[in-house]
Simulated assay, not measured.
Amino acid sequence: MTERTPFRARVHAPGAELDVQAYDFESPELIGGDDRARLDAALEAWGRQVGMLITAKTRAVVDVATAPSRIQSFGAFIASAEGPVLWATASSAGGRILYRIPLEEARYWAARMIGAAGDAAGDGAPLTSVERALARQVLTEQLAELQHATGGMFAEPVLEAFGTEPPSSVDRDAQAVVAVIGTLRRNDRRQLAAAIDAELVLQRLGAVAPHQDAAQVRTRIGGHLALAPVEIALRFDPTRVGPDTVLDLAAGDLIPLAHLADRPLVVTLDGEPVLHAAVGGNGERLACVVVSNGDLV
């Protein structure tokens, strides 16, 4: 016979406001505290170095600003791309890095590197072989700076794939640390973004937790769920009446309920029936006495 875990409810005063923080499962909080500050400082340093490289290559001053990193799946990162972009896939110490730049930004880099003004508006046409080669060179150098700018936090990435279509080899369900670098050149704003395998980042930060047994994980999740606040209510069996009955109700009228007098009421948690109970009291408050936790039929 399996021993049942005793049910413990956390009681809150009626009308009390519960301080419950929403959790975004699409952007889980895998990194926090000092580790988050250290990571964001390293990625900000990389963003500044990327800006210096762009300025040096194009001979046009560009200002950069790096947004705080966030956790996002590779699939969501790919889906968030706006307009034609270039994708560069690199590996670093066994982890994947996906780097994304606007196609017109790459075209501008290439134009400036061969002495053109780079002011002509792009028509979304594919890059020429020369533009593609120059853009690949610039992206390779920017990714290489990830190791130096972050003080060796990451191993030097090795470029694996480069093109206008997102790589099929990337696991889109895997989590990544996303860093967005905003650039401003005169009145032209662009966004470069890199998604770094979250497992790689956690390893480099030394924040990887030891492998946990699946049974232990389920037990801990169950413990968290047991402490989650829920609404508890006592419910009669529903009674169906016509609209005319409701419209004719007046003070003192009685409504016969379908619930039999000798039948226990139903205890619900967030609207879901879980127990049978009878009406009782606790001092000056109404209460219920659990009479059965069997099948609710």
Rank of each mutant, 00 (worst) to 15 (best):
R4P: 02
H12E: 06
P14C: 03
P14M: 10
V20F: 07
D24M: 02
E26N: 13
P28S: 11
P28M: 11
L30K: 09
L30R: 04
G33Y: 11
D35K: 12
R36A: 15
R36K: 15
R38G: 08
A41H: 07
A41M: 02
L43S: 05
W46K: 02
Q49W: 02
V50R: 11
M52D: 10
V62P: 03
D63I: 01
A65D: 14
I71S: 12
G75H: 09
I78V: 15
A81P: 06
A81G: 07
A81K: 00
P84R: 11
W87I: 02
A90M: 09
G94W: 04
L98G: 00
L98A: 09
Y99L: 10
R100Y: 01
E105M: 13
R107A: 13
W109L: 13
A116V: 02
G118A: 08
D119R: 15
D119H: 12
A120E: 15
G122E: 07
G124Y: 08
A125Q: 14
A133I: 01
A135V: 10
A135N: 03
R136E: 14
R136D: 04
Q137C: 00
V138A: 14
V138M: 14
L139Q: 07
E141R: 07
E141L: 13
Q142T: 09
Q142K: 06
Q142D: 01
A144H: 11
L146C: 04
Q147N: 12
H148M: 07
H148I: 11
G151D: 10
G152V: 05
G152I: 05
E156D: 00
L159E: 07
F162W: 08
G163D: 14
T164H: 10
R172T: 15
A174T: 07
A179P: 00
V180G: 00
I181R: 08
L184G: 01
R190V: 08
A193G: 07
A193M: 12
A194I: 15
A194M: 11
L200H: 09
L200G: 01
R204K: 08
L205D: 08
A207Y: 04
A207N: 10
P210F: 04
Q216R: 13
V217K: 07
R218F: 04
R220A: 11
R220F: 02
R220G: 00
R220C: 00
I221F: 15
L225W: 08
L225S: 05
A226W: 02
L234A: 14
L234Q: 03
V241S: 05
D244P: 04
D244M: 01
L254W: 03
I255L: 15
L257R: 06
H259L: 00
P264D: 05
V266N: 03
L269Y: 05
L269N: 01
V274H: 05
L275M: 13
H276E: 03
G283H: 09
L286N: 09
L286R: 14
C288L: 13
V291I: 12
S292E: 14
N293K: 09
G294Q: 09
V297S: 12
